[in-house]
């Protein structure tokens, strides 16, 4: 019987894991070990429900409810001096429990602190846009939509940003294969020549390092050049190529490999 492979996560998997292996954890600290973080957390939890909070690798992580995100970020920007949104995006947990985890990476330059605000949404649920608070969220939320298909409510221009507008599928989902789906692999052919040209053109060659040494149409073999399109066997004699005209060029002196010097010392 063929081994079962999950369809909802087609990413690369470890091919072997010791069955007694237990992953260690990145250590977490209590929030009250840091005075600045604990006062920030107190101000947030006074107004909003905080589900979980801890400090990991020097940054506080706060889990909140999805509906509170605009309020929390507004409070952090206006009262707690977290004036910059460094980054925001999503993590795909669809295979685990059909949710997405959204994170917002906040920076306070006055306090020299970074906080990560996180919450979970269900598959298909939209997030509230924070574009009114931080203009950079305009592009981040578009990228998140492009990559995961998560819509943002009240966003001024909810369109794809990196992929073409007519693309199908969202590339960073774990269900999306690394080499792309069928739509992706035939995108250019279908668009330019039509579906019926697929057989004539054939699939895309994805090995970028592939060089056919008998192909004299596209490749010049340095030192063994032949006229374009010549049938070759691979036994041509090596010909010393001279890339400068024999008669010389006006005002240009002849380049001589043997007598020339490479200047590698700026103080020469």
């Amino acid at each position: 019987m063929r081994a079962y492979k999950a369809k909802d996560d087609v990413q690369a998997k470890a091919y072997y894991t010791d069955r007694f292996y237990v992953s260690p954890q990145v250590p977490k600290q209590e929030v009250d070990t840091d005075a600045v973080f604990s006062s920030d957390l107190a101000s947030i939890s006074a107004k909003f429900e905080v589900k979980e909070s801890f400090i990991q690798v020097g940054q506080m992580v706060v889990y909140i409810n999805a509906k509170d995100i605009y309020g929390v970020l507004e409070l952090m920007r206006d009262s707690l001096e977290y004036t910059q949104l460094s980054e925001m995006s999503a993590i795909d947990w669809l295979a685990k429990d059909n949710t997405f985890e959204i994170f917002y990476q906040m920076l306070s330059m006055n306090k020299r602190k970074r906080i990560r605000i996180k919450y979970f949404i269900d598959n298909g649920q939209a997030v509230d846009s924070v574009e009114k608070l931080f203009r950079c969220a305009d592009w981040s939320e578009r990228e998140m939509f492009d990559m995961f298909g998560i819509q943002a409510n009240n966003h001024p221009f909810m369109k794809r940003i990196l992929m073409p507008y007519d693309w199908q599928g969202h590339p960073l989902l774990k269900t999306y294969p690394l080499e792309g789906d069928e739509f992706a692999s035939w995108y250019e052919v279908d668009k330019i020549y039509g579906k019926e040209a697929r057989e004539t053109i054939g699939p895309e060659i994805r090995d970028t390092a592939r060089v056919d040494r008998y192909d004299s149409q596209r490749f010049a073999r340095l030192g063994f050049e032949v006229p374009k399109g010549t049938n070759i066997t691979g036994n041509e004699a090596k010909n010393e190529q001279n890339y400068q005209e024999d008669g010389g060029v006006f005002l240009v002196s002849k380049f001589d490999k043997k007598t020339s010097v490479i200047v590698d010392d700026p103080q020469r």
Binding site: Q11, S23, P24, Q25, Q105, R114
Partner: peptide, 27 residues
């Protein structure tokens, strides 16, 4: 180990940050 980290460095262009979420796997 299982956990996550966001590290910002000052690249010539500005703040270059890497957010990594590890679930204990090699990827």
């Amino acid at each position: 180990p299982v956990g996550e980290v966001y590290v910002a460095t000052e690249s010539p262009k500005g703040e270059l940050g890497f957010y990594i979420n590890s679930q204990g796997g090699p990827y």
